[in-house]
């Protein structure tokens, strides 16, 4: 998504600068919500204020909404009875599992960098297995990340003095 935005808005139409793209990547990470919608909001807002953000967001979600509605009408997934389709979906689920394991490995490689990360990961895993609501896992990990970083920075500042 981001390379496509860069190509169209920076190189082709020259409406945005390279530095805007850097800002956009930062924002899409910190605002809750999907990367696609965040980027659309950013580009729209930059070019035409909140109205631009609104129309850009609609533009991003409309195609997938229409496609999914068509699929939902054609294949009611909640009660499949066709034996061949059932077997096909059984294999698709196995494939999704494989893709997710690959994604977990890729994200894990980025995340597991320092020693402090390991105990935190372990703690969060325990929470996950103990069937706590996933909402709390997200909140806990974000708050603890923020607190830890503030603590480390204040310690470094103390040493400098």
């Amino acid at each position: 998504m981001i390379p496509v935005i860069e190509n169209t808005f920076v190189k082709k139409h020259k409406l945005l600068k390279e530095s805007d793209i850097v800002d956009m990547i930062g924002i899409t990470q910190i605002v809750p919500g999907l990367i696609a919608i965040n980027s659309a909001c950013f580009v729209g807002h930059k070019l035409a204020g909140w109205k631009g953000a609104f129309t850009a967001t609609l533009g991003v979600i409309l195609p997938s909404m229409i496609i999914i509605m068509i699929i939902a009408v054609l294949f009611p997934l909640e009660n499949l009875s066709n034996l061949h389709l059932l077997q096909a979906f059984q294999c698709i689920r196995a494939c999704v599992l494989g893709v997710f394991i690959f994604l977990a490995y890729r994200i894990g490689k980025k995340v597991l960098r320092s020693y402090i990360d390991l105990p935190l990961a372990f703690l969060l895993l325990v929470l996950l297995v103990s069937k706590i609501n996933s909402v709390w896992i997200i909140v806990i990990s974000c708050v603890s990340g923020a607190l830890y970083e503030v603590y480390i920075r204040s310690k470094l500042m103390g040493k400098k003095k």
Partner: peptide, 17 residues
Amino acid sequence: PWAIGFLKGIKWAAFIM
């Protein structure tokens, strides 16, 4: 700092999810 730490936390949560 809190924003950077928050971002780290988000990556954690993404991994766990």
